[in-house]
Amino acid sequence: MRLSMDLELQDIPGQLLLALQPLKDNKANIISVVHHRERKTPRGTIPVRFVVEMDRSKLDAVKSQLVSLGVTVVRAGEVRFIEDVAVVLVGHILDSDLGDTINRIDSTGYAEVMDLALTMPGVNEPSSAYLRIRATGKAEIHKALSILRQVGEEKKLLVIEPIEDEAA
């Protein structure tokens, strides 16, 4: 099953590899790693979020191995999508492989497309779609949006993102 793990790593080289070892040992399939270098904690550690596919029964073993390696486990459990965002797309959405567009988000592991509505006024006319993306956190929302922006550029789709409530 898909699980997410919030860890805090020491800010010294080699820590990421160190933290990966217990996951490998327990045959976890790593789907995404989001390294929040910019969000150093007051303790001087760096938050990292792993999303993995693995047998839930192995979770405790992984956790204790991590702790014995000096890695702090803040939270580990089912993937929780706590943030979501609305996006509108305009262009040749179906012809440019909508499945692939969605998959580019879903395959990140930290974000997924939900709630899709599509309007097609006619052949050769650009169609419009509304979709919501949900993700495991604000930073992941930003990453998902930048993936979508890039897909939009490749496929010549206009990507209309929501305004943020606060300045960046």
Binding site: V88, V90, A117, S128, Y130, L158
Partner: peptide, 14 residues
Amino acid sequence: TGVTPEALALAREK
């Protein structure tokens, strides 16, 4: 120039 009435309508519904 790329904005469509359909996009405006979808957005408005939400």
